[in-house]
Amino acid sequence: MSREALYESLSAVMDDEADEMELHRVLAATKDDAELRAAWSRYQLARAVMHRDLLEPRLDIAAGVSAALAAEAMPKARIFSWGFVGRITVAASVTVAVLAGVRLYNQSEMSDAELAQRAPQPSLSAPQVQGTPILAGYTEGVEQSQEPSSKDMGKDSEWHEKRLPTYLRQHVQQSSVNGAESALPYARAASLENR
C-alpha cells in the first residue's frame, strides 16, 4: 500500500470515518513505522491546537487502540440492558476507545445529548476487563490482564446495575441538601421514580 493511502487511512481514523479494515491497516503499519506513529501524534496535536486544548503529545493512541482490539477479539458481544438508567456503554470498543481518548482532551467530538439520544448499540458493549485501553501511555500505564472465563462475565454488569441506581439517588438527594435552589434537585430526584 502506498504511503499516501496509508496517510489517508490515518486521517480517516482521526476523523472517525475509517472502516475496520482501514483501522487494522493503520494499526499494523504503525507497529513498525515510527514515522507514521509520529504523524499520528502530530495529527492529534494539531487537532488539539485547533481546539485550543491541552494535549499530552506522548499519548500513544496506537497502543491504546491495539489494546482495545485485543480486548474486543473476544467472540461474545453481550447486549447490556439496564432498565433503570436506560443505557450504559462499556468503554471497550475501538470506536469508544478512540473517541474517549480524544474526548479526554477536547470534548467537542460528540455531545452528551447525542450520546444520550443514540439508540442502544449492542456492538459497543464488547466486554473488557481491567486496564482501559484509552489509558495507554497515560500516567498509569497499561494493565493488560488475561481475559476472564465466560462464567464470570455475567457478574460485572450486575455489579453496576445494582449500585448505580443507589449512587444516582444519593447524588441527586445530596444535591438537594447541599444546594441553595430547592425545586430543581427535588425534581431530578422525583423524576427517577418512574415506574
Partner: peptide
C-alpha cells in the same frame, strides 16, 4: 471482575 462503565441520564 467488573468492567468500566459510562452512561448518561438526561443532564446527569
Amino acid at each position: 471482575l467488573v468492567e468500566d462503565a459510562r452512561s448518561q441520564l438526561g443532564p446527569t
